[in-house]
């Protein structure tokens, strides 16, 4: 479980983006974070991933305070897929997936190659293993980026707008796909896409102007804001 307590965050230019945030992300399969543009969703993700340092408040992951965690432990525990994905353009998809586990976890290349190929198989894009990011479609790149993050087998994975490159139909398929992907990983997905949220998540929350407007069962939360 990821727990956020009385979190306040302001950017260096003085913009306060988060006000006294208190919330819990249970270790269940998919949790949806919704909200208007500029409401602070990405900021919250970046605080959890420790790319931003909140001015006050505490974040714990499975009862460990993130501010005291070693970098490597944090990264092994929490994966991030950015809105703009940031696949490495000089590496093909397979190499993108294998880079971190080779360097960070020192796992044998052979084993990784097998694992990555299997993962691509399940994603339905085995033919893209040797393709470069500039050669694949937006939806394929999105899957590849998630696959890359999953190679480290994190307990939690933060997804920023994972369906932004998908149309409505594929985003529901994507929700089903995500559900089956890895049972041991909990996804926290920031999204505008209510269809996707309903299809994928059981619980969720809705943010407004840096505060949490409502949280709970996904149907209630989405109903309150449509």
């Amino acid at each position: 479980m990821i727990k956020v307590e009385t979190l306040n965050f302001s950017y260096t230019d003085g913009t306060q983006a988060l006000f006294d945030i208190n919330c819990e992300f249970p270790s269940e399969h998919i949790f949806a974070v919704m909200g208007d543009s500029g409401s602070g969703k990405t900021t919250l993700l970046n605080c959890i991933a420790r790319f931003l340092m909140p001015q006050t408040g505490k974040i714990t992951i499975d009862d460990q305070d993130t501010s005291g965690m070693a970098e490597i432990d944090l990264r092994n525990k929490v994966g991030v897929v950015f809105q703009r994905l940031h696949l490495f353009p000089h590496l093909n998809i397979l190499q993108n997936m294998m880079l971190a586990p080779t360097l960070v976890q020192n796992r044998p290349v052979k084993e990784l190659r097998k694992e990555a190929s299997e993962m691509l198989e399940r994603l339905g894009i085995p033919e893209l293993a040797e393709s470069y990011p500039s050669q694949v479609s937006g939806g394929q790149a999105q899957r590849a980026a998630i696959a890359r993050g999953l190679m480290l087998k994190p307990s939690y994975m933060l997804l920023d707008e994972p369906t932004s490159a998908l149309d409505a139909r594929t985003s529901e398929e994507f929700a089903l796909w995500l559900k089956e992907l890895r049972e041991d990983t909990s996804f926290i997905a920031v999204t505008h896409d209510l269809l996707f949220a309903r299809a994928a998540a059981r619980h969720g929350m809705y943010m407004e102007q840096g505060k949490i407007a409502s949280q709970g069962v996904i149907e209630d939360v989405t109903a309150a804001h449509c």
Binding site: E71, G79, H86, L99, A100
Partner: peptide
């Protein structure tokens, strides 16, 4: 973003 993504993947 490239450096950020690499950091998120745990690279030193």
């Amino acid at each position: 973003g490239q450096a950020l993504a690499a950091q998120a993947l745990g690279l030193t």
